[in-house]
């Protein structure tokens, strides 16, 4: 029974700690964008998609020639920096990636799969990787769905070279 009692006290303590300064239940500021009565109208999901995030831009990218590489890269920028000397984020920094050996950015903790892959990032290798990362290197941490459109991949690769000054 001793332990129950302690567990009980402990949880109570934790709960108290969680409450801290006892925040008021009411908000300090409340912006009502749509009134609850607006529920009858079709949800705003019907509105045209905004262009403010990487995924949105990627999805909105038209798969015709003249794809903006920087815009296409935005989906990669969610995890990767590309500026010279910028720190790695969720994924490694990609400055100068093209032509490098895979898994060679110092200080980034790669998956064993990509460390063992033994590939060099030629355009062809990068293209097949971007098309289907998990298929190309099973076990890679970059488990995104891949870029299905070949022109879009080419635009991304071109941008990665441009942004690296090569």
């Amino acid at each position: 029974m001793r332990n129950i009692s302690r567990a009980a006290l402990l949880v109570l303590t934790a709960a108290l700690a969680a409450c801290g300064s006892e925040p008021a239940a009411e908000p300090a500021e409340q912006i009502v964008v749509r009134e609850p009565s607006d529920l009858a109208i079709p949800p705003a999901m019907n509105e045209s998609p905004t262009q403010d995030t990487a995924l949105a831009e990627a999805a909105a990218t038209d798969a015709v020639t003249g794809i903006d590489g920087e815009a296409a890269f935005a989906q990669c920028a969610v995890c990767h920096s590309i500026g010279k000397g910028e720190p790695s984020d969720i994924g490694p920094n990609l400055h100068g990636i093209m032509g490098q050996k895979a898994a060679s950015v110092a200080g980034y903790s790669y998956s064993p799969a990509i460390e063992a892959a033994g590939i060099t990032w030629t355009e062809a290798e990068m293209d097949s990787f971007l098309a289907d990362p998990l298929e190309k290197i099973p076990g890679t941490k970059m488990a995104s769905g891949g870029v299905t459109d070949g022109d879009e991949r080419a635009a991304i690769i071109a941008y990665m070279m441009d942004a690296s000054g090569s």
């Binding site: 925040p23 908000p27 500021e29 409340q30 912006i31 705003a44 403010d52």
Partner: peptide
């Protein structure tokens, strides 16, 4: 939370309410 600038958020699709709850 002292102040919030939600000028963009409130124009975004699907958004119903934006709250500054203090903490």
């Amino acid at each position: 939370v002292e102040k919030i600038d939600a000028s963009k958020a409130k124009t975004m699709p699907g958004v119903l309410q934006i709250l500054n709850m203090g903490d």
